[in-house]
Every structure is written in structure tokens, then in C-alpha cells.
């Protein structure tokens, strides 16, 4: 229960931030960190706890983002009604990809590549259909009001915080539930888990559906925060990479890893962007080098390093 209390304390701390910080820069940086942590947790649930590495988490992200935009722009839905629909669709896409891949027993790099291919298929489709705006993309009209899920910085901070807390609770539940034990058993050895009576297919399905729903939340947030989505932003590789980087850098298979990873990467990004001078490229060169060094010195992620010190 101590770890559950930790989630509560964390929520409380972040909830107090707007009362004390009035720097828009800092608030935006915190919002983007929580957002990256959400994507990272969505990856971690499948990749960390379930051992199913995905290179195509953008497929869920984009589904959520497009559902949010299409329902509001084309069908005039309210954003608050569109959000659960976006989550359901994200989960459904997860279920569809999961059913196909797990039915045929895809694991390891084969699973990774199939998710990547699905993301590309969705990108091409979004680029083709008229109702997604094709290549022009979709723009959510600017109407700032809590009723439209369009806030100032503080409101958006609370929105992304509640998404992240939901994700943290899911991760906590996985860590402490029988389902989680099954999922980790499947990760460690599918055959012996199956021999012990674990319904491997169902366990994996549940994990990918939850990952899809959480990732769709991330997509929905993106659309509300930036008001524009196009096929490349939605289904391009950079979102998938952002999700897996936060999880792996922080430490996979842990409840706090994605948040720690997201914070570290955000900090690294801000520092390199601001301190490396104006020569284009230098900032990202340093970013890449530090990334490699981090892996070199912290092979089990930042959280892994911390637990090693504790022992």
C-alpha cells in the first residue's frame, strides 16, 4: 500500500504546482513531461510488464488523436464525449492487432515489426480518406472553455495529470494483482506460464487493450493541446520512439520508470536545446551521445540504478 500512497503524494504535489509556479515555460515543460510519461507508461504496460516490445505505439496514439479530432470536427461531438470514444477505439485497435499477432504467436522482434507496419498502414489510410482531412490534416477550432476541454496551462496540467494518474494506477494494479503476476510470468516464460494454467492469450490481450486505451488518451490530449493533427504527427515513428524511450531510459517493468525516464529526457532536451549555442544540430548530437552514455552506465534504466544503490 505504500506505493499506492506514493501515487497519491505525487498527484498532490503536481496538483499544487500551478498555485506556486506561474512560469508558463515551466508549466509547459511539466505538462510535456507528464505527457511523455503517459506515453511511456502505455508502452511499459505492454513492453515492460508483458515483454512485448512495440515499435508502433503511434498506431494507438494516432487512433485516439484522430477519433478526438474527427468526432469534434466532422460530427460536432463535445470533446468530453469524444474522449471515451477515442479511448474505446484505441483499445479496439489494440485488441485487433493483439488478436492477430497473438493468435499467430508473434513475439520479440516479429511483434515489434508488425506493430510498426500497422502504424504505417494507418498513416497511409489517414492520408487517403477524406474524413480524416487526408494530407491536409484536421484542425480543432480554437474555443477556449472547460466545456470544450480547452484550458489554460493549469487546466491542461490537471487534465494530463489525471490521465497519468490513471496510467500509474493501472501499472500499480499490474504490479500487485494476480493479473500482473500472470503477465510477468508470460513475459519470463510463456511455455511454463501456460503449463501453470495461465491463459496466455487473454492475459496478453488485456495488456495490449489497456496500452491502446492509455496511448489513445495521449493522442486525445495532443489534439486538445495543439489543435492540429496530420497523418505524420499521428502515426509517424517519432511518437512510438518517444514512448519507448521514456520507458526504457527510466527502467522497464517498474511503476515509476516511465515518469523518471520522461523527466530525464525532458530535462536533457531542454538543456541541450538551451545551452548548446545556435549551430543547428549540435543540440541533438549531444542529446544522442548522452542517450548512449546513459544506456552504457545504466543498463537497467535510471530506476534500476536507484534500486541497485539501495541494496
Amino acid at each position: 500500500m505504500r506505493s499506492l500512497a506514493a501515487i497519491g503524494v505525487f498527484a498532490l504535489l503536481i496538483a499544487l504546482v500551478p498555485a506556486m509556479v506561474d512560469s508558463g515555460y515551466l508549466l509547459n515543460a511539466i505538462i510535456m513531461t507528464l505527457y511523455a510519461a503517459l506515453l511511456g507508461q502505455a508502452w511499459n504496460i505492454l513492453g515492460g510488464f508483458g515483454g512485448l516490445f512495440s515499435f508502433g505505439h503511434a498506431v494507438f496514439f494516432g487512433t485516439g488523436a484522430y477519433a478526438m479530432a474527427v468526432l469534434q470536427v466532422n460530427f460536432g461531438w463535445n470533446a468530453w464525449v469524444a474522449l471515451p470514444a477515442a479511448m474505446v477505439l484505441g483499445g479496439a485497435v489494440g485488441g485487433f492487432i493483439g488478436a492477430l499477432s497473438f493468435r499467430y504467436g508473434l513475439r520479440g522482434s516479429y511483434f515489434a515489426l508488425v506493430t510498426l507496419a500497422f502504424a504505417e498502414v494507418f498513416r497511409v489510410l489517414a492520408n487517403t480518406f477524406q474524413f480524416t482531412g487526408a494530407g491536409v490534416g484536421l484542425m480543432v477550432p480554437l474555443k477556449e472553455s472547460a466545456l470544450n476541454m480547452q484550458f489554460g496551462k493549469t487546466g491542461f496540467l490537471y487534465l494530463i495529470l489525471s490521465f497519468l494518474i490513471a496510467a500509474q494506477l493501472v501499472a500499480w494494479w499490474i504490479r500487485h494483482s494476480r493479473f500482473g503476476a500472470w503477465l510477468q510470468a508470460v513475459r519470463d516464460n510463456e511455455e511454463s506460464a501456460s503449463a501453470l494454467g495461465v491463459d496466455v492469450f487473454r492475459v496478453k490481450m488485456l495488456a495490449i487493450v489497456m496500452a491502446g486505451m492509455l496511448m489513445a488518451c495521449g493522442g486525445a490530449f495532443y489534439v486538445q493541446y495543439l489543435h492540429y493533427i496530420d497523418p505524420h504527427l499521428a502515426f509517424g515513428a517519432s511518437v512510438s520512439v518517444q514512448a519507448l524511450m521514456a520507458a526504457i531510459v527510466g527502467g522497464i517493468g517498474s511503476v515509476w520508470g516511465p515518469l523518471v525516464g520522461a523527466a530525464a529526457l525532458q530535462l536533457l532536451g531542454e538543456l541541450t536545446r538551451n545551452l548548446m549555442g545556435d549551430a543547428p544540430g549540435i543540440n541533438l548530437i549531444v542529446y544522442g551521445v548522452v542517450l548512449v552514455l546513459m544506456v552504457n552506465f545504466m543498463p537497467r534504466g535510471i530506476v534500476g540504478l536507484a534500486t541497485r544503490w539501495k541494496r
Binding site: 506556486m20 512560469s23 511539466i30 523527466a263 530535462l267 531542454e270
Partner: peptide
């Protein structure tokens, strides 16, 4: 308030800010 809280609530991000020396 901002300066006193930034070290606790968002220590990481504010370190970045501090190094940059943005005028408030």
C-alpha cells in the same frame, strides 16, 4: 513564491531554468 517552490515541486525542470538564467 515561484523561486522558493521551484526547488521542491519541480526541482528538475527548474534546474534547467536556473542554469539558463531567465529573467522573471
Amino acid at each position: 513564491l515561484k523561486q522558493s517552490t521551484s526547488m521542491t515541486a519541480a526541482a528538475a525542470a527548474s534546474t534547467a531554468l536556473g542554469t539558463l538564467g531567465f529573467p522573471s
